[in-house]
Computed example of a mutant assay.
Amino acid sequence: MTVTLYKWTLDRYHAAIEAGVFEDQAVELLRGDIVVMAPEREPHACYSSEGAEYFRSLLGDRAAIRETKPITLPDDSEPVPDIAIVQPPLRRYLSHHPAPDEIFWLVEYAQTSLTKDLGLKKDVYAEAGIREYWVSDLKNARLTVFRNLSNGTYQTELTLTEGTLAPLAFPDITITVERLFS
Rank of each mutant, 00 (worst) to 15 (best):
E108W: 07
E18P: 12
K69T: 12
L29F: 02
I65Q: 04
A128D: 05
T153W: 09
T72N: 03
K7V: 04
A45P: 13
V86N: 05
D123Y: 08
I83K: 04
F181E: 07
E132P: 00
R12T: 10
E28N: 03
L165H: 15
E28S: 12
A110Y: 08
Y109E: 09
T174K: 06
V35A: 12
E40A: 00
A169I: 13
L158E: 12
L29V: 02
D82F: 02
W105C: 11
N148T: 13
L180G: 14
S182H: 11
D172Q: 09
Y6C: 07
D123W: 00
Y54Q: 11
T176P: 02
V177M: 00
R56G: 06
D117Y: 06
K139R: 14
I85C: 03
T9C: 05
F146N: 00
V86D: 08
P89A: 09
T2S: 14
V3K: 15
D24V: 11
M37W: 07
T174I: 07
I71L: 01
R31V: 06
V36Y: 03
A99W: 15
V21A: 06
D76R: 13
E18K: 08
E157I: 09
V80R: 05
A84G: 02
Y47P: 13
E50L: 14
D117E: 07
R62N: 04
P89E: 04
W105M: 08
T4Q: 15
L90Q: 14
Y154P: 13
V3A: 15
T2K: 14
I34R: 09
R12V: 12
D76V: 12
E42H: 04
A128Q: 01
K7D: 08
Y93I: 05
L120Y: 06
T174Q: 01
L73A: 05
T156W: 05
T159C: 13
A45T: 15
Q25A: 10
R56M: 03
T4D: 12
P98W: 01
M37I: 10
G152K: 02
S182A: 13
S113R: 05
G20M: 10
G32A: 10
A26W: 11
P89N: 02
C46I: 14
P98R: 08
F55Y: 06
I65H: 08
A166C: 03
P74Q: 11
N148Q: 15
T144L: 00
S49R: 08
S95C: 14
T72R: 09
I130C: 06
F181Y: 05
Y154C: 07
S77H: 00
Y47G: 13
S150G: 14
P100M: 01
K139E: 13
D33F: 04
Y13N: 00
Y13L: 10
P81E: 02
P43N: 04
T144G: 10
A110V: 01
W8H: 10
C46Y: 14
S136G: 14
N148E: 15
V86H: 07
N148I: 00
A52N: 08
E50R: 15
A45R: 15
N151F: 06
L165W: 15
K69C: 11
E78M: 15
T144W: 02
L29C: 03
R179M: 09
A19N: 10
S150H: 15
E102Y: 01
F181P: 08
E78P: 03
S150T: 14
L138P: 09
E178N: 09
G60F: 01
V35E: 07
V27D: 04
G32V: 05
A15E: 02
G51Q: 00
P74E: 11
T9Y: 01
F181R: 04
T176H: 10
P43V: 01
E102I: 02
